[in-house]
Design a protein around this nucleic acid. Sequence first.
DNA 1: ATTTAATCGTCCGAATCAGATGGTCCTAAC
DNA 2: GTTAGGACCATCTGATTCGGACGATTAAAT
Lengths: 178, 178
Amino acid sequence: MSTPRLSHTSYLVLGLVSGLDKATPYELKQMVSTSLGYFWTFPHSQLYSEPDRLADLGLLEVDQEDEGRRRKQYSITEAGRAELEAWLRDPDAGRAEVREPGLLKLFFGELADGGDMTRLAQARVKLYTEELERYEAIEKTISDEPDLRYPYATLRLGIAWAKTCLAFWADIAERLPG
Amino acid sequence: MSTPRLSHTSYLVLGLVSGLDKATPYELKQMVSTSLGYFWTFPHSQLYSEPDRLADLGLLEVDQEDEGRRRKQYSITEAGRAELEAWLRDPDAGRAEVREPGLLKLFFGELADGGDMTRLAQARVKLYTEELERYEAIEKTISDEPDLRYPYATLRLGIAWAKTCLAFWADIAERLPG
DNA sequence: ATTTAATCGTCCGAATCAGATGGTCCTAAC
DNA sequence: GTTAGGACCATCTGATTCGGACGATTAAAT
């Protein structure tokens, strides 16, 4: 039984639904935007369409309100849980993609003039400083919830990443003219 | 004159062509795969189609061989250079996207069983160790080429990122059972 | 000459994306 | 107790991106 290739979004949805027991797409959206979504964005339209796809594949079950907003509640099926667990069990995972638009500019620094790259670096420092503050504020609220152990680990990498970038850009800003 | 929104790929192509003076899509592909491409992949089909789009917009010029492989050589136009420089001059740049498939699994660690996450972490440690070695090998070959100052900076962030991930996953591996 | 390997280019169906649009519900001001 | 505004929620669409199959050309090896 070869399921037609599931995407990262598929597993995200599967995992969230499984963790929440029952969830509407809107709730998924909320979940994502306050966790992983900080550095890995998922368009919300996907979070509405993907559950339906997974339901078609028999990995989720739908339960739709028949009045008003006609919300759809999704829950995971046996097959869905099996798929999710198989995925979690497999220690293989693709390579990371790191898309830092600022870095793309810096890569072409030779073609820029004057203090362009310095200003870029300064702007980035500001950006990452703020990002770091935001993350650290969140950290305070979840760091000792034992239930959130794994999401917390995720956040820690976010923080480490932000610190790395901050240091990198600060260094660039410092050693460049201007 | 509002150019119809250029993508990251557009600027990548613009920048590479500008830096190389003249380039074929194949050369762009080579360039990318030995630099930025290590952590920000661009499908090669884009590197073939994007130059044509940019040529349509008047930002590149094409010169096609009329025999054999009919290679297309692209070079940048005045308008192209202006567009590129305007982009470089603007210190604003979008937020970074960091897509670490391993992290997606870890996020759902609560749903996994036994040593799954430990094995994941170990696999990631291995992955990043190798990645780091590769980067550091490259570093040796370019670190004192003054022309490659900016690409080298890019590589340094790649290295820093790999080290951060390595430390993160090593820590996870260590504090987990198994 | 022939095979093999490396180089190079195009194409297409599928997945992804941003964002416009529109409906439903709650609340609190009147 | 109506109504206006804002928050909540859902769907759709056209454009872009994506991976990768496929095929052609050239260079190297036998």
